[in-house]
Structures are given as C-alpha cells and as structure tokens.
C-alpha cells in the first residue's frame, strides 16, 4: 500500500513513525514520511528528519523522508491526492495530565478533508 506518514515532532507523531516503519517492513508498504511544521512541537524539523531517517535505516526499508513546509494539514491532504497515496498515518493525539486524549489541529484537518483513509496511531 502507498502510505504517507505525517510527523511534526510531538511524542505521538514519533509513536506513529515507529509503528508505520515497523509495519512497512513486514507489509512492504511504499512509505513516504513527510516532516511537517508543528508549531506546538519542541523538536526542530531538522531533528525530526534525522529521527525519521534513522528509523528508516534501522528497519532496513526503502522509504523517502521528505521535508514539507507550509500549512501541515492541507499540505498532507494535497500530497496524498496529487501523488496517489492510499492512506495517511498520523499521531493519535496528546494525552492531558488527567488522561484525556485531545486530537491536534493537524489530525483534525486531515480527518475532515482527506479523501484517503486516515490512521491515528495510539
């Protein structure tokens, strides 16, 4: 399957990265990892790219790591549509001190606007 994994440096996005890379290794997915701007993230995009490349290398899979600038939600939806992706994978949300899950604005936009299936990784 042709999979687009969008990550911006939040904890849940790294969980999504690890899980998607793991799955790609066994399912032979055609995986692209898009490193997007997430203003809520404390990790710089360059560091996120490095972590993504390290994960891909460790899993010994052939996946592209791409830096995507601009509005993250609309860029992901646009890339998925124009390049024929079948699925978008994102982090599954932030957990509050109480244990409540809140879905970030990127995931919310993608969920409502994508034509592909969207997977939120918990």
């Amino acid at each position: 399957m042709k999979v687009l994994c969008g990550i911006g440096g939040s904890d849940d996005s790294f969980r999504a990265l690890d899980r998607t890379v793991e799955r790609a290794a066994v399912a032979s997915d055609d995986l692209t990892i898009a490193v997007v701007d997430n203003e809520d993230s404390s990790v710089s995009p360059d560091e996120v790219v490095e972590r993504a490349e390290a994960a891909v290398e460790e899993a010994a899979i052939d996946a592209e790591v791409r830096r995507v600038e601009g509005d993250p939600g609309s860029r992901l939806v646009d890339i998925a549509e124009t390049e024929g992706f079948e699925e978008i994978v994102l982090g599954g949300g932030h957990t509050s001190p109480m244990g409540k899950i809140t879905i970030g604005s990127i995931a919310e936009f993608v969920l409502l606007n994508a034509k592909t299936s969207v997977t939120l990784v918990r």
Binding site: T95, M98, G99, K100, I101, T102
Partner: peptide, 20 residues
C-alpha cells in the same frame, strides 16, 4: 466515556486512579 476516560477494564482503571 469522555476522551478516553474512564478507561475500560479493572487493570487500566487502577492504573488511571493511581495517577489521579
């Protein structure tokens, strides 16, 4: 349930209660 809490199953409930 609201936004994932309370969690389901006794083990997860106990874990959650330990925190709060």
């Amino acid at each position: 349930r609201a936004q994932g809490i309370p969690p389901g199953g006794e083990e997860r409930i106990r874990e959650w209660l330990d925190a709060i």
